[in-house]
Computed example of a mutant assay.
Amino acid sequence: MNREEFNKTTELTKNNKDYSRQAILSYVICSLLLIVNLYMVVALCIYEYRVNHKNKKNKRLIRTRQFGLVKDISANRMRHLCLTSCIFILPRLVCEFIEIKYGQDLDVICAVIRPIKVILQTVQLSCLYCVLWLRQRKLYTSEVMKPLVNKCTGFLSWAIIGIMISAAVVGVALYIFAVRFTSSNQGCIVGWSLVWKAAPGLMLIVTTITLQIILLGLLILPIYKHRRAMKGIGNPNKKDILLIRRVTIAAVVAVLTDLFCGLMTITLLIQSLSVLTHIFFDIDMIVSLFCVICSFKDWRMRLYPRLTKSTQVAGTVRRMRPGLGSNETENHRVDETAM
C-alpha cells in the first residue's frame, strides 16, 4: 500500500469513527425527544377527551334548561392544531432514526428522507403558526377590540396568513427542487445545489423568527390598547397583563431557541457534521410547541393531566349570555377564550 492509499484509508477510518460518535449522540437525543413527544401526544389526547366530555355535559345541561348554545369554534381549532402539530413530530423523529442508520450507505434514503422531513417540519410549524394566527384573529374580531384596530393593523392581521403559506411553499420548494442530498461517510450531505447549501436552512430560520415576532406583536398590540383604555376609565383588567406577560415570555423563549438551534445547524452544516444538523431542528420543533401550549391559561391542564382534575377543564360549549350574540363578549373585557 502506497502512502496516498494509506492516507485515504486513515482518513476514511477517522471519518467512520466520527460518524459513529455522532450517530450514537444522535440516537440518544432522538430517543429522548421521542419520549418527550410521546408524552405530549398522550397528555394532549387526555385533554382533548376531557374537553369533549365537558362539552357533552354542558350540552345536556343547557338543553335541559332551554338556553341557547354557543360553541367556541376557534378554541376547538386551536386545540386540534396543537395536537396535530404534536403528532407530526412523531414521523419526523422516525425519519431521523432511518437517516442515521442508512445515511452513510444509500443515496435513495438521503434523496427521499430529507424532503419528507422538511415537509413534516413545515406542516408542524404551520399548525403552530395557525394557532397564533387564530388567537390574534379572535381578538381582532371581538366587539370590544374592533374600535381599537386601525386599517393597517387589521390588514396585516389578515395578510399574515398569506405570508405564512408563501414562506412554507418556497421553503419546501427549495429543499425539493434546488437541493439534492446524497450519502457519504459523513451521512446525508448536499450532493448538488442551485443555491448556497445553507440557504434553505437559513431561510427557514429567518422566516420562523420573523413570523413569531409579527404574530406576537399582532396578539399583544390590541390587548395593550384595551388595557390602556380600561385604565383610563378606572377599570383595569389584571388578566390582560397576565396574558401579555405569559405570551411574551413564551415567544421570547421560542425565538431564542430558534436562534440557537439555527446557528448550531448552520455551524454543523459548514463543518460537514451532517448527522447532527437536523437534530437541532427537532429540538426547536418541540420547544416551539411547548411554548405555544404554555402561552394558554390552562397550560397545566394540557400538559400535566395527572396533576389536575377533569372537573377543572373548561368546555368550549357554553350557555349564550342574555342579550348577546353568539360571537360577542362582555364590553369591558378581552375574550377570555383567547387567553
Rank of each mutant, 00 (worst) to 15 (best):
R245T: 15
R246W: 11
V247L: 14
V247Y: 11
I249W: 09
I249T: 15
A251E: 10
V253W: 09
V253K: 10
L256H: 11
L259E: 04
L259C: 11
F260V: 15
F260P: 11
F260M: 15
G262K: 02
G262V: 01
G262N: 02
M264C: 12
T265L: 10
L268W: 07
L269H: 14
I270L: 13
I270Y: 11
S272Q: 15
L273S: 11
L273F: 11
V275F: 04
V275A: 04
V275T: 07
L276K: 06
L276G: 09
T277S: 05
T277I: 03
H278C: 13
I279N: 09
F280M: 03
F281T: 10
D282T: 07
D282C: 09
I283Y: 05
I286H: 02
V287L: 02
S288M: 09
S288A: 15
S288W: 04
L289C: 06
L289I: 04
L289P: 03
F290P: 01
C291M: 10
I293W: 02
I293S: 00
C294F: 04
C294T: 05
F296R: 03
D298T: 01
R300P: 03
R300F: 02
M301N: 09
R302D: 01
L303T: 02
P305T: 00
R306H: 07
R306Y: 09
K309T: 02
S310Y: 00
T311K: 04
Q312W: 03
Q312L: 06
Q312E: 05
V313T: 01
V313E: 00
T316H: 06
T316N: 07
V317R: 05
V317D: 05
